[in-house]
Every structure is written in C-alpha cells, then in structure tokens.
C-alpha cells in the first residue's frame, strides 16, 4: 500500500506564504537593523577630568612624573593661544542672523539687531549693462575712519534701482541724514551706519552696508575707533 502523499499546495498559496514570510522577516530584522545603525552615545563631560583630578592625589609617583610636564605644556599652549587673540574690543557681525556684537576676548559688551545685505542682484538693462550684487562681504576689516553726521554721495545703483538715470553732477547725488549719526568706514564703500528705517532692523535689506539703530550705533561709535577690527561671517 502506498504511503499517503502530502497535499500539493497550489501556486497562489505558495506565493502567499512567501510574501508572509518576507513580511515577518522584515518586521523581525527592522529593529535589529535600526540598532546596528544607531549610535552608541556616551556623555562627553567629566569622566576624564575627574579621573585626572582625583587620581593625582593617590597616584603612583611614575604617573605623577608623566602628568606634571604635560600639565605645564598644556598651560603654556593655552597661554600662547590666548596671546594670539585680538586684544581689546572688536566688532563681530553675523550676517545670516543680522546681529552685531561689540566684545572682547572674555565678554560681550553690546549685542545689537542690525540689517545686512539683501542678496539682491541689480542689473542695468541699458547703457553699460552693469550688475551689482548686494551682499555684505565676509572677512576681517579694520575700521578706516569714523565720520559724524556723514553725508551720502549716492552711487549709480541707488538711482538705477529706483528706475532713475544717474545724475551727472555730484551735487545731485548728495543726501543728508540717511546714514544716521555715524558712519564707520570699512573700505570699498562698505560702512557701518545708521538708518531712517529702524522698523526694518533685523531684516536683510541693505546694499551691503551694516545698518544699526541710533542708540546702538552711538555705543558702537564710542567703543570703536579707527583700527578696531570688524569680523563679519
């Protein structure tokens, strides 16, 4: 008598089992994969320093002999680094967040909300077909001069962006009061100056200069002098 044959599963049932098995495997494997791809994180603070501070008291002489010169070398390196920092007060400008600080190596004297370049491109459609890009440049710039009650001699772009032709005579370009009480020159036409539109401070709206509110500008002008570095990032 022949042994009973196992039932033959139809093809559709085999496919269903295959799909179910794959789904079960995926569900089981997913957390394992997630664990393997995750980071084994540890706090960065304290342990090393505490070990160093606490074990020095009861450490072997050989260990102390190794650490002492290292400690001296670390202090010398730190002092060397500190000596290279800019002495006195300096200015820092954050273009992306429209902030200005007057600070020293160890402390912040003033924080101000300012306006910086608008990232706008102005294209002259006729004539010389010039292009201007209104960005505040990054880098380190010394203050070249400080001017009180500065007068603005408007460049060509200031007329073209209003759809006006630039005037021929210089006297037609002069504008009083629009730069505020002080202008600190950084070179190449860039300045830190005041503004008539304090409600727009904090927004990127200038043609590259750094606009500061009246009271903050007075404090900046008092703290800075020709030669004071301005760091713009």
């Amino acid at each position: 008598m022949d042994a009973p044959q196992p039932p033959v599963r139809p093809a559709t049932e085999r496919w269903k089992l295959l799909v179910l098995g794959a789904a079960v495997a995926a569900v089981l494997i997913a957390p394992i994969t997630a664990v393997l791809l995750s980071f084994d994180r540890q706090p960065m603070v304290v342990n090393g320093v505490d070990a160093a501070a606490e074990t020095l008291g009861g450490a072997e002489d050989s260990l102390l002999a190794d650490i002492a010169p290292l400690e001296i070398e670390v202090e010398k390196l730190q002092a060397s680094l500190n000596a290279q920092a800019t002495p006195g007060l300096y200015l820092v400008v954050d273009r992306a967040n429209n902030r200005l600080w007057v600070r020293s190596r160890d402390s912040v004297v003033l924080e101000a909300v300012v306006s910086t370049g608008s990232h706008t491109i102005l294209r002259e459609s006729t004539g010389r077909k010039r292009t201007w890009t209104f960005d505040t440049p990054s880098g380190r710039y010394p203050i070249l001069s400080e001017r009180r009650h500065p007068v603005w001699v408007k460049p060509d772009w200031a007329f073209l962006e209003e759809g006006q032709p630039p005037p021929e005579r210089v006297i037609d370009r002069i504008e009083n009061g629009s730069l505020g009480e002080w202008a600190l020159d950084l070179g190449d036409g860039y300045m830190i100056h005041g503004t008539l539109y304090e409600r727009l401070l904090g927004r990127s709206i200038t043609h590259g200069c750094i606009r500061v509110g009246r009271d903050d500008l007075r404090a900046v002008a008092r703290a800075a002098e020709p030669g004071t570095p301005v760091f713009i990032f």
Binding site: R41, N47, G48, A51, E54, A59, L63, I67, E71
Partner: peptide
C-alpha cells in the same frame, strides 16, 4: 537605544586625557 553607562574610571586615562588636551 538607551545611553550606555559610562565606563569605569581608569587612573591611566588621566595621562591620556592630558595628552589629548595637549
């Protein structure tokens, strides 16, 4: 996924800390 416990303090680690700091 929980943060691991900190490793036991090794007195010899203080030497390594200063070297790394330097």
């Amino acid at each position: 996924h929980l943060p691991s416990a900190a490793s036991a303090r090794d007195p010899q680690a203080s030497n390594a800390v200063f070297r790394a700091r330097e």
